[in-house]
Amino acid sequence: MRMLINVPETVVADALRGMSVTYPDLTVDVEHRVVMRKGVPYEGKVALVSGGGSGHEPLHGGFVGRGMLTAACPGEVFTSPVPDQMLRAAAAVDSGAGVLFVVKNYTGDVLNFDMAAELAEDEGVQVAKVLVNDDVAVTDSLYTAGRRGTGATLFVEKIAGAAAEEGAPLDRVAAIAHQVNEMSRTFGVALSAVTTPAKGGPTFDLPDGELELGIGIHGEPGRERRGMMTSGEIADFAVDAVVDDLRPDGPVLLLVNGMGATPLLELYGFAAEVHRVLAQRQVPVARSLVGNYVTSLDMAGASVTICQVDEELLRLWDAPVATPALRWGC
């Protein structure tokens, strides 16, 4: 157990205490587990509320702030939050213009956010939802719980957040969020399993020198295990997977995302290979982001997300954002 923790039971509360002393622009309700932008609700502005299991930091709490999320609800490690949290967040941030729930497509997240939406509407809060399901490793069919929400969450939260910041009404913010999700695809690879505080050891066994293709962000094994591949071969595989599925015919945003324990040095090298393959596939990269944004605790590996953008989405992507993990233009 190589963890920097007190006891597994307090990991999330401890982290929230840490965020609360680190970010003066955030209000952190440690007891009720809600991270909010200071000074909400903002008159007339649509609010964005997201959340999910902890262990994916900086997602979602690190994306709360001007031009992105209004509030985030962290669950236990890899466990979606409970409806009480989303309800409390929605009630606190709603200006009357309504709230968009950004929900990653996992059974737990969907069910809990659905319950919260029902309760919030009972309390007179207008709620719209966007389901993020960008992970092409999962076949979206009757035989699965559907594509998982992973890297595209960042694009959805940033771009819809910018629209809300500009004063767009709820249906418009929701439509943009849906559009971003529709235009996004992700594929992820793990080079090691993940260790959760509760389990104290790796959640599955991945021998040194093998990798899992098509992993999610919860330490689940992927669909396929292979012998070690080079960074270039992995880039070929991942880019082919997302490009073949999306078939973009215009410029894309690119996220080369580290799963947590892969050094930035390696991630940059991988980004170079991803750019190479995208160029070969004649997909122009309009903007590119490299770093650990949607992580899986101490898992080694990376994911590639592309999102095809039109001028409007690109403008919203470039708009100012000021959050702990994403910041530009202000």
Binding site: G53, G75, E76, T79, S80, P81, V82, P83, D84, Y106, T107, G108, L111, N112, D114, M115
Partner: peptide, 12 residues
């Protein structure tokens, strides 16, 4: 259970 579990099993 709904208020404290989360995940898929909480609501179910």
């Amino acid at each position: 259970l709904i208020s404290t579990v989360g995940g898929a099993s909480g609501p179910l």
